[in-house]
Amino acid sequence: MRLKLKDLPEENIFSSGHTACAGCGAAMAIRNIAKVLGKEIIIYVPASCLSVFNGLFPSCAWTVPYHHTVFENTGAAISGLSRAMKRKGLDNVTVVGIAGDGGTADIGLQALSGAAERNEDVIYICYDNEAYMNTGVQRSGSTPHGASTTTTPVGKLMKGKQDFKKDVPLIMMAHSVPYVATASVSFPLDLINKVKKAKETKGFRYLQVYAPCVPGWGYEQSKTVELGKLAVECGMWFLLECENGQLKINREPKMKNLETYLKMQGRFRHMDEKQIAELQESIERKWEFYKGYADLTQRLYSGSEASV
């Protein structure tokens, strides 16, 4: 049965009083995801904005067991936690890693890939704010084309990131894990039901949640949700779900209003027509790819539960 907003509990798993910036997309995602996951969880957080805004010792926003060590080991750490739970006979406990996009697409990719390949019984959540926000907005592999960051600044010669966003969800689909999904803070029902499905699935589950960042993207702090909606509308972010090899597109993008989306954000404000055209072309190609990939996998894996 699909969850509705009223089904979520009032009680916080991720407490108020955390120190995320006003309007933080990541905090919005995490506190609601935690409500769906419930109390029988263990959380691992690598170095990230979250590892700071969830409180510094002796303070902690998590009301559930929490573990943190370093930046690049989320996949490995949650593997260790999951195996320990198995030994302790705590089969009802879900082990959840929550990392940023830098900790996922870049420095943590190896450990993530290893854990996925071993099909560890864990949920890996990447909150994607498209740069290293904890250290003050440096580019990550997940930063989109054209975006200005402190390491892809707008200069006289080059303006913004020259390369394109790394498609980590696709990389995860290539690992043939039971569940891969993308979601956005701006689509509440889609998000919470994907978390629910992830929770009810066994094995390795990957969820990447689009989470706008006020200081990193340079927009008015009340516009977090609106930006997330525009991103899905224009094709800068897709809502996808890949279950046992079968890809489904949850929401058909209109593939328009890219400029409206870009102009709302300081990080894209410098982009000229040529750069915008390049970006438009790249997302259209991506969209065609996903449509084809969905058709193909629907055919290949239809009716097969044990397809992976």
Binding site: I42, Y44, H67, T69, V70, E72, N73, G75, A76, A77, I78, S79, G80, L81, R83, A84, M85, K86, R87, K88, Q110, A111, S113, G114, E117, R118
Partner: peptide
């Protein structure tokens, strides 16, 4: 025992730190 065939030593120590932190 649970044996994790990790993909690097970095992950090996990360995993056992987590499992030992979990009390095992």
């Amino acid at each position: 025992c649970e044996y994790i065939n990790v993909e690097s030593e970095h992950s090996a120590i990360s995993a056992v730190i987590a499992s030992q932190a979990a009390g095992v």
